[in-house]
Design a binder for these strands. Structure first.
Lengths: 152, 152
DNA sequence: GTACATTAAATGTATATACATTAATTTTGC
DNA sequence: GCAAAATTAATGTATATACATTTAATGTAC
């Protein structure tokens, strides 16, 4: 369905304006689908994001500051996200020997198991959700990268 | 900059996965730019969204339920957003004669003035922010529409 | 080495959000 | 017309978020 129909707006003042609206609308749409999927595992999309970052690095731990840099939403409060994941025994905190200010975060075996359960569901979500062939998905990613490339 | 560099992730399991991450990352990036712009006017992106909807309909008022349908984020709590806008005298509430459950919301003169101040800034933001020509913006919008068109 | 600035993570606090529930009204089925 | 169901908006409540501040450790200038 076109963005015009979805939000019942007939005209936009420019292709850029339509794109702005469409981008935010589509991302919200996607985020709600994800939220529904992760809820069964008692995870928020942000908590899932942290776990994915930790799995990508495991068995090497990741500093809180580095998690922040890699988050999709850079303003996330990673300390508190890690608190939530700790309560569920999905991650561990370790002090960093070389810099006592820093804290190393490591995904646990249980954390890896949860991700393993979720993996096929996210793949399935993406493949059934997106009415695009992989070439179109690549093209869309390419245009999003280009969109952001102007500013620093 | 490519999404791989932005979030320091070298590989994705599929073009669809890269797209998922890229979409959410790009929308957050955009939303933070918008938040910065609207802050000078003491508005959140959501409050701005409501005002835009009301201007598009003025002088015909819009029911709360209809605002919800047109919002970019459909789970927004429009009652409370309208409360905030009322406090700032940017909108008025009117009871609906034909359905006493419904509430009509109308943008005020002050609301229209604020939008008029913001208009050139959002246009400028979009044109300087997006490293795309208008054809590419159209193509991106088209692909986003297509992406969402599978599910109901 | 001491003072000052910087960095890392955690915390305080006000606000926003998600989601369920409530209250009032209207619609529907009979 | 009446009871049950549906709709509309507001509210209750727990949690999440944004943003500033704090605490501790490290780096830098002198």
């Amino acid at each position: 369905m076109s963005i015009e129909t979805d939000i019942k707006q007939r005209t936009f003042r420019s292709p850029y304006h339509r794109l702005t609206v469409n981008l935010i609308y589509t991302a919200n749409w996607l985020l709600h689908k994800q939220t529904g999927l992760f809820r069964a595992f008692d995870l928020s999309p942000q908590q899932y994001n942290v776990l994915r970052i930790l799995r990508g690095s495991a068995p090497v731990p990741v500093k809180v500051s580095e998690i922040t840099e890699r988050m999709l939403d850079k303003t996330s409060n990673v300390s508190r996200l890690v608190d939530k994941l700790l309560e569920k025994n999905l991650v561990e905190r370790k002090s960093c020997p070389s810099d006592r200010r820093a804290v190393h975060i490591l995904i646990t075996g249980k954390g890896l198991e949860v991700l393993k359960e979720i993996d096929p569901l996210t793949s399935e979500l993406e493949s059934t959700l997106y009415n695009l062939d992989s070439g179109e998905a690549d093209e869309l990613s390419r245009l999003l990268d280009k969109l952001r490339s102007a500013s620093t």
